[in-house]
Amino acid sequence: MRAHTPSPRPPRRRGAVRTTTAVLAGLAGLVLASGCAAGPAGGGTDRPDYFLDVKGMAAPAQEFTTVGGEKWAFRDVAEDRLTLLYFGYTSCPDVCPTTMADVGLALDGIGADAEKVDVVMVSTDPERDTDEQLRTWLDNFDPDFEGVRGPIDEVVAAAEDYGIPVEAPKRTGGDYLVTHGGRLAVLVPGGDAIGFFDEGTSAEQMSAVLPDLVRENL
Rank of each mutant, 00 (worst) to 15 (best):
G190A: 06
G190Q: 03
V156S: 05
P93Y: 14
T179A: 15
G39R: 14
W137P: 13
L218A: 06
R183V: 00
G56F: 01
T179L: 12
R128Y: 02
T124A: 04
G42S: 02
D139Q: 04
E115F: 04
A3Q: 04
E167M: 13
V17H: 13
A101V: 06
S7E: 05
Y89F: 15
M57H: 00
N140I: 01
W72A: 11
E146H: 08
T83H: 13
G191V: 02
G195F: 13
E79A: 13
A158T: 03
E79D: 10
S202W: 05
G42Y: 00
V155W: 01
G182F: 11
V156A: 07
G200V: 11
V166L: 10
A193Q: 08
V209Y: 05
R171K: 15
K170D: 14
L84R: 10
M1K: 07
F196T: 11
A22E: 11
E160V: 05
A41E: 12
R14T: 10
G200D: 08
V67Y: 03
A16F: 02
P126V: 01
N140F: 07
R9V: 04
R47N: 00
Y89D: 14
V122Q: 09
C96R: 09
D198F: 03
I164N: 11
E79T: 10
L210A: 10
E132W: 00
F51M: 02
V103S: 08
D94H: 13
M57E: 00
G174A: 07
G195I: 14
E63C: 03
V186C: 09
L134V: 03
E199R: 10
G173D: 01
G191Y: 04
T130D: 05
G150D: 07
L184H: 01
G182S: 14
Y86T: 12
L24Y: 01
G88E: 12
A114H: 11
T179D: 14
L107Q: 07
E63K: 05
G56K: 06
R183W: 00
T83M: 14
L32Y: 02
R171P: 01
F145E: 04
P40V: 03
S207C: 11
V67C: 15
P165M: 09
D129C: 04
D76G: 04
T21G: 02
M206W: 03
